[in-house]
């Protein structure tokens, strides 16, 4: 086994996704062990949607119409049999951080039929200005570089920014670690915690920047909680990993796929055979039923 194969093997080892195919549209599903039926069908549950990496403005053969794909994803959210409590976009809303791209993505997101929209920035949203244009567009109600926390349905949500400081990997910085320290200080340890970030908070593939160098400082503050779920984007593919009390779920993209970790020289947009792109893109439904240990997660491809 070569070093690269070993890295790939260990990166994938431990994945706990239950792969199911129902009606040809569900890509993966992680349900609460006590409630094998997906809680997204439960009207008393907290239900929200994660979308990620829409890259408005991307021009390339991996997807020649990312705006159409994003419009499709929004339509799919609006066609759900329930109205999600909120929609979270985990970054790379735009491809090149231009004012026109921010304007377009904001207008498109305003069509989402949901209680509220939350976002975190990706590195594509803060290319040349440290995230200033991003915060002008989406920063209302946030602190620092754009981080925030909120409560919904008995769950405590923390939306973190790990793409603004210039480091080799994702980086949170001491101000944000301090924010989390104060933010969770008064919470009882049985409060379920959900953390949003763009770059994964676990080392998915550091050679490609798929990790956050100071994530352990935040994760150690969350160690006392019974249930911690980290939802990220950035890697344009589904991936799940559990470390102790924390489960990480990388979401797929609405724009274009990237290679599996270490597959090829660089994380370049992947051009799929004709007709296969829709299989790689998708949205994620998440539900939490009070009293459950874990969240139910259902990844659905763009129909």
């Amino acid at each position: 086994m070569t070093r690269r194969q070993l890295l790939r093997h260990s990166a994938w080892f431990g994945a706990a996704v239950v792969l199911t195919v129902a009606g040809g549209e569900v890509i993966s599903q992680v349900a609460d062990a006590q409630n094998p039926a997906p809680a997204v069908d439960d009207p008393t549950a907290l239900r929200f949607v994660q979308i990620s990496d829409s890259h408005l403005g991307f021009k390339g053969s991996a997807n020649s119409a990312v705006e159409d794909s994003f419009a499709h994803a929004i339509k799919q959210v609006n066609a759900l049999p329930y109205r999600p409590d909120f929609v979270a976009h985990t970054g790379d809303l735009t491809h090149l951080s231009t004012p026109a791209q921010f304007d377009q993505v904001k207008q498109m997101m305003s069509e989402l039929k949901t209680g509220q929209v939350f976002t975190v920035p990706g590195e594509h949203d803060s290319i040349d200005d440290g995230g200033q244009k991003y915060r002008q567009t989406f920063g209302a109600g946030t602190q620092g570089d754009g981080w925030r926390s909120f409560d919904a349905g008995g769950v405590h949500f923390i939306a973190l920014v790990n793409t603004v400081s210039l480091e080799k990997l994702g980086h949170l910085g001491p101000d944000q670690v301090e924010f989390v320290r104060k933010d969770v200080a008064g919470l009882s340890s049985d409060t379920p915690i959900v953390v949003f970030s763009h770059v994964p908070l676990f080392a998915m593939y550091p050679a490609w920047g798929w990790g956050t160098d100071d994530a352990v400082q935040v994760l150690s503050l969350l160690r006392r909680f019974a249930s911690v779920t980290c939802l990220n984007g950035h890697v344009h593919q589904l991936f799940t990993k559990t470390e102790g009390n924390v489960t990480f779920h990388s979401a797929t993209t609405t724009a274009y796929p990237l290679p599996k970790p270490g597959d090829g020289p660089a994380p370049k947009p992947l051009v799929l055979p004709a007709g296969k792109l829709g299989d790689a893109l998708g949205i994620r439904e998440v539900a939490y039923h009070k009293g459950s240990q874990a969240l139910a997660i259902k990844d659905v491809r763009l129909a």
């Binding site: 590195e123 594509h124 210039l166 080799k168 550091p206 920047g209």
Partner: peptide, 10 residues
């Protein structure tokens, strides 16, 4: 220096 879009490029 680095690339701000792909900061592992240094």
């Amino acid at each position: 220096y680095l690339c701000t879009i792909h900061p592992f490029m240094t």
